[in-house]
Design a protein around this nucleic acid. Structure first.
Length: 412
DNA sequence: TCTGGGGTCCTAGGACCC
DNA sequence: TCTGGGGTCCTAGGACCC
């Protein structure tokens, strides 16, 4: 039986902010999404005040003022950098780190030695080198390691579900909707069959599981029984899509502003595709607006000759958003999605081109390089700086302490 | 009145994750 | 008045084919 570990950074975004502002320790802190719209990370103190994950900020604003909760706009550049630093420490402990999300990684522990001792050592080392507190869950399968890491947060930071006895106790005491991959819909369906705990779920008949929740549900139940059926790999599978979307800072009614947004999103998406060495064979654009209190959206897609060129993608995005546009609507958000991605090989034609193509490529490479070094949006292609009525607002952002020279912390 | 059976591919939408 | 952004996988149903 191999030992799978899930390493989960506690309250990750809040913890990142605390690394550079130790004054935030032991205080209620929340991190807010774009436009300071939603709460997306909470310190334990903020959770204790009853502030839920994902709640609109305006609903808890009064509570935050009253309790002197520090509310900070999300700084994803900082979080991405600390995430890389945490991963670098993890790779010293296991050769096959699989990044599952910005704040979680799966590892396989070698069969020799005491897994609990190893987990504790790893936890201490991440804290020492990055300042980020983590929880470690151990189990014979990913779903059990994940469950263990959730429980570890209130059990000293490390918990093992490697032993059958511990597993039975924990599964029987866990409501099924706390299982990874089971949310409201699935929990309702399971309740109809009398399954309310993780143990009930794992004990259901395979054919019934297959019929009620599909293959995903069946696999999950097997994982809870201690059978490892979900693949573990340190090689990231090829990306399927690239999305850039934003809610607007205020409602937008003019086609010009909408086109400017589409152009900016397409340019950013193109940059990301190039960074991953991918070309897009399809592009879609969506817009969102409100009507009679209902949230509505519309979308259009188009196949493209595979490309990673900014001008091609910008042109396609602008054309599609023009077709979506309806006079009189107050748009609230829009987005561009690149799909049908494939590896970008150097096109043969480049060997014979007249130099214009090569120059365009070089320009793109320079812009990508500057944006990578100095922060996204430092340089952009013609036009998308104009008519930025849509630009989101975030007024409580912390500095990019680790990725921008001008934001480096100063030591007196 | 009777009206096959089996494929593939694509897309939209559902459900879930962090 | 104010409700994020970026992903994944699966399924059902339609179009089409032989």
């Amino acid at each position: 039986m191999s030992v799978l570990a899930l390493v989960d950074c506690n309250n990750f975004f809040v913890s990142c902010e605390r690394v550079f502002r130790p004054g935030l320790e032991r205080r209620p802190v929340v991190v807010l999404s774009s436009n300071d719209g939603c709460v997306i990370s909470r310190s334990e103190e903020a959770k204790a005040l009853g502030i839920g994950m994902g709640v609109p900020f305006f609903e808890v604003r009064a509570l935050c003022v009253e309790n002197r909760v520090e509310a900070i706009s999300a700084n994803h550049e900082l979080y991405a950098d600390l995430s890389r630093r945490v991963a670098a420490v993890l790779r010293r402990h296991a050769p096959d780190v699989e990044g599952y999300s910005i704040d979680e990684s799966f590892l396989t522990f070698p069969p020799d030695g005491d897994p609990l001792a190893r987990a504790r050592a790893l936890r201490a080392e991440v804290a020492r080198w990055t300042g980020v507190p983590v929880s470690v869950g151990l189990g014979p399968s990913k779903a059990l390691a994940k469950l263990a890491s959730d429980k570890a947060k209130k059990a000293g930071g490390v918990l093992s579900l490697l032993e059958a006895g511990a597993r039975e106790r924990v599964l029987a005491a866990t409501p099924v909707e706390q299982v990874w991959g089971i949310a409201r819909r699935s929990a309702e369906r399971l309740a109809a069959h009398g399954a309310r705990t993780a143990a009930d779920f794992a004990a259901l008949d395979d054919a019934l599981l297959r019929k009620t929740l599909g293959v995903g549900g069946l696999r999950l139940a097997q994982e809870l029984r201690g059978l490892s059926v979900l693949a573990h790999s340190s090689v990231a599978p090829p990306r399927q899509s690239v999305t850039v979307s934003r809610s607007f800072g205020r409602a937008v009614g003019a086609l010009g502003s909408l086109e400017s947004a589409a152009a900016a999103f397409a340019a950013r998406a193109a940059e990301r595709a190039r960074r991953h060495g991918l070309r897009a064979g399809a592009l879609s654009v969506f817009v969102g607006w409100r009507e009679d209190g209902r949230v509505l959206s519309d979308a259009l897609s188009e196949r493209l000759p595979p490309t990673d060129r900014t001008p091609d993608l910008v042109r396609a995005a602008k054309a599609l958003i023009g077709r979506l546009f309806v006079e009189g609507r107050s748009y609230r958000k829009a987005g561009v999605v690149l799909g049908a991605l494939e590896a970008a090989e150097t096109p043969q034609a480049e060997l014979f081109d007249d130099g214009a193509e090569r120059r365009a490529r070089r320009l793109e490479k320079t812009v990508d390089g500057l944006n990578a070094a100095l922060g996204p949006g430092t340089l952009s292609f013609g036009g998308d700086r104009l008519a930025r009525a849509w630009a989101p607002r975030s007024e409580r952002r912390s500095p990019c302490w680790t990725t921008r020279w001008e934001d480096l912390p100063r030591v007196r």
